[in-house]
Amino acid sequence: MLNNSMKVEFSAITENERFARGVAAAFVVGLDPTVDELSEIKTAISEAVTNAIIHGYEGRGGKILMEGVIYDGCVEFSVSDEGVGISDIRRAREPLYTGKPEDERSGMGFTIMETFMDSLDVESERGGGTRVTMTKKIGRVSP
């Protein structure tokens, strides 16, 4: 079974959302994911990176660290920022809750990550940044 790891750091700007999900998709391609699995991973990564840019750094920029590990047919991604952190993680994870209604956020980010990945873990503290870790088993449905 293929085991692999990667780490990439990039600026917290919206131009890099596409870059981040492209890297994530390229990283898992060796696991032979389905088109749907790839879309789900790309969407979940996009949500995590957008959260870091908009909520973590509040659009002021900074660095985002994305790490990936592949083991036993599973992929684990983490997206970390050193931004303002989340004061109430439970509330932030509620569907349709948004900390920034004025910015047209749909409040669906965490719900999408939870739905599209098998597990989602959020570590955060006020002023201490946020780290989102997600795992997904690839190729569960064999042809």
């Binding site: 047209e104 409040g107 669906m108 999408i112």
Partner: peptide, 8 residues
Amino acid sequence: FMDSSGIG
């Protein structure tokens, strides 16, 4: 490709 920003 779309994420929750599209819904927003």
